[in-house]
């Protein structure tokens, strides 16, 4: 941090000014001219929060994707299907048992098991053949999408999370001050804030797991040099299975979280596959930090695009991807 300020003093000042301006836009009561140019403050703050929470959701999905790639160089294009599978399984369990949390847990475990099966039955048989692995996962995702359509039909499902997650909370951000002098505070759904909290918690947990535990150390060593790790007596295959289970499980977990925030329907698998792809392309394949930054950027871009230029919203996401590829082909945080 300190060296960054010393090396790039100019950019550090620019970033600092931007941050100050940003904070001012969030907390200050907007003057008339700003409302004239950008619209109501409520829209802006809500879009910002939506973007950040969506980024949190994207992080949950993409972190598994990037984790699996980072260690095994497997591009698992069936990741979107795992998201949707988790959502459906979570819905079934939550619907039968009446416990949303139970559904969440079962979705994680069930999809983690499906990930282990995938690793064991498919990826291990064609280690080192990237292209074939990718094609196989495409085939699997076609079949999975069709099978899920057959079982759960095209209906849209809606989760019912616990009551205390329902409703909206007043944020300590003033939207406008009425002529009577009362301040109107911005309301925001509690569940969405919880999504953000969960995403941050998962991010921190992953960081601690990778950087502060013995298994995490093995995984990082495997990312750098798989053969050397195997030579030093670690059962690499077991590490692979574990990582695949965590990565897939996170997709299933995100399925329930995201399915509750939005809804569960066929086609969501493609949407979240796109999200994970763009997030990891922007953030850099194989980097958890990159996934977090990429998810935040893409979530914000998507929501601001939707709010401020509706018909060209997707182009914004795409442009970000193109610019990042042009400047840093390996992604913002990508190594190599």
């Amino acid at each position: 941090m300190r060296s960054f300020v010393e090396r790039h003093t100019f950019w550090a000042i620019v970033i600092l000014l931007a941050a100050v301006l940003f904070l001012w836009m969030i907390f200050a009561v907007w003057p008339e001219w700003l409302i004239d140019t950008l619209g109501r403050k409520k829209t802006f703050v809500n879009t910002l929060l939506n973007g950040v929470t969506l980024g949190g959701l994207y992080f949950l999905v993409a972190s598994g994707f990037t984790l699996i790639f980072g260690l095994m160089r497997n591009v698992n294009l069936a990741h979107g299907s795992m998201y949707l599978l988790g959502a459906y399984i979570g819905y079934e369990v939550a619907d039968r048992t009446g416990s949303w949390f139970f559904g969440l847990a079962i979705a994680f475990i069930a999809v983690a098991i499906s990930g282990i099966l995938l690793q064991y039955l498919v990826f291990r048989r064609m280690a080192g053949d990237d292209l074939r692995q990718t094609l196989v996962t495409i085939g699997i995702s076609i079949i999975a999408a069709d099978a899920m359509l057959a079982i759960w039909t095209g209906t849209t499902y809606q989760f019912s999370p616990p009551d205390w997650l329902f409703g909206a909370a007043d944020l300590p951000i003033i939207s406008v001050i009425r002529s009577s002098g009362d301040a109107v505070y911005i309301k925001y759904p509690i569940y969405r804030l919880a999504v953000l909290l969960v995403a941050v918690a998962v991010g921190v947990a992953l960081w601690v797991f990778l950087n502060r535990t013995r298994i995490g150390m093995m995984i990082r060593a495997g990312v750098n040099d798989r053969d050397m790790l195997a030579a030093s007596g670690v059962n690499v295959q077991m590490v692979f299975v574990l990582v695949f289970a965590i990565g897939a499980g996170l997709a299933g977990f995100a399925g329930v979280i995201g399915g509750t925030a939005l809804s569960v329907a066929p086609g969501e698998d493609i949407r979240y596959l796109l999200a994970s792809l763009v997030v990891v392309i922007v953030g850099g394949l194989g980097s958890i930090t990159g996934a977090a930054i990429g998810a935040l950027i893409i979530g914000l871009a998507e929501q601001f695009g939707l709010a401020y230029f509706p018909t060209y919203g997707v182009v914004l996401t795409f442009l970000i991807m193109v610019v990042v590829l042009a400047v840093r082909p390996q992604g913002l945080m990508g190594g190599r």
Binding site: V75, L77, D130, L273, L274, I281, V315, T317, P329, Q330
Partner: peptide
């Protein structure tokens, strides 16, 4: 500018993005 597996990912992202774009 990137190679191998990245190509599939980028082109797939382009395809999906264009699909959502024309739909919107």
């Amino acid at each position: 500018r990137t190679e191998g597996i990245y190509t599939i990912m980028i082109t797939l992202a382009v395809a999906v993005a264009f699909f959502y774009f024309v739909r919107q």
